[in-house]
């Protein structure tokens, strides 16, 4: 029993890491621009597809394909900001909402055109399994968990310890005051989209290596990502980290102990339960 719980926890950590990376991207974009960036999941999957393409058709080693895809993610994120969201920056909120939905459909369509409808699995060749007592940890999952932790820590350091990172927080908290500090509020969204999309691409690569990328997966992930935001508390980085981890583990344990048929429903049951008890989310501030 104990071993099973521990095993399920470890199982859930990898997908939890993916949720955290997606949610961090969504929460930064939401914090800065107040928009629900629905296309985030599909763009993240584009990064996963790209890695697959580079690693298979182009014959690049996966470890070389990943940085290329991450850089492509940064550029793509910036492009999305300039072309899609900047024009509606000062318009009614509904405009950004429609743009986000349209962009999602567009990116899904592009993914389908470029990479087809078949699922793709990024070949890593990592098939060793580590054993610890009764618990097993596949090599690949371990690396995914470690990579997720490294990325989250790197992002925290960037946001907390660098001027640009602090400027991002400042813009999220008070845009006018940030301008008075000399922050260029036109470049900050660019940086935020670049960073968020890179994190998303990392998540896409993880999904592609652990599981598979296929049409529709990105949209599913973005919905989970928003559930994590609400679960953890809107606009809170620690909330996104805690929320994503909790969701991953809860899904895994609930699928194991209740029923796998309800795995995707569980995210929302947990979210609703938490909101009933703490309307502001796990780490959100009381209004």
């Amino acid at each position: 029993m104990l071993i099973e719980i521990l095993q399920q926890t470890i199982n859930g950590l990898a997908i939890g890491g993916v949720y955290v990376l997606i949610a961090l991207g969504l929460t930064t974009v939401f914090g800065i621009l107040g928009i629900a960036h629905f296309a985030h999941g599909s763009i993240s999957m584009f990064g996963g597809y790209l890695t697959y393409f580079l690693a298979t058709s182009q014959g690049l080693p996966v470890l070389a394909a990943i940085p290329v895809a991450l850089v492509a993610g940064i550029l793509l994120g910036m492009l999305v900001e300039i072309l899609a969201y900047r024009p509606v920056r000062n318009a009614n909120h509904i405009n950004a909402f429609i743009v986000a939905l349209g962009l999602t459909m567009m990116v899904e369509g592009i993914n389908l055109q470029l990479f087809g409808h078949e699922q793709v699995v990024i070949p890593t060749g990592l098939s060793r399994v580590f054993r610890l007592g009764g618990i097993t940890v596949p090599e690949l999952r371990l690396y995914v968990i470690v990579a997720a932790i490294v990325l989250v820590v790197a992002m925290m350091i960037f946001v907390e310890r660098t001027k640009t990172g602090q400027a991002i927080r400042a813009v999220a908290e008070n845009r006018d005051a940030a301008i008075l500090m000399g922050v260029n509020v036109r470049t900050i969204p660019l940086i935020v989209f670049g960073m968020s999309t890179a994190l998303g691409v990392a998540a896409g690569i993880m999904v592609g290596a652990l599981f598979a990328i296929a049409p529709g997966i990105g949209e599913g992930l973005v919905v989970k990502g928003f559930a994590v935001l609400i679960l953890g508390g809107l606009g809170s980085f620690p909330g996104a980290i805690l929320g994503g981890t909790v969701l991953g583990i809860t899904e895994s344990i609930a699928a194991g102990f209740i029923s796998s048929a309800y795995k995707d429903v569980i995210a929302f049951v947990v979210m609703i339960l938490v909101l009933l008890i703490r309307p502001q989310g796990l780490l959100g501030r009381a209004p």
Binding site: Q166, A170, E173, M181
Partner: peptide, 29 residues
């Protein structure tokens, strides 16, 4: 701001979730 004009705005407008020291450092952005 870079030209040398700074304002201490009406209603203070501190960054509420950032620490005091982080607020001060933002001043020197």
């Amino acid at each position: 701001v870079r030209a040398g004009i700074t304002m201490c705005p009406e209603g203070r407008q501190v960054f509420p979730q950032m620490s005091v020291i982080q607020n001060l450092r933002m001043g020197a952005y």
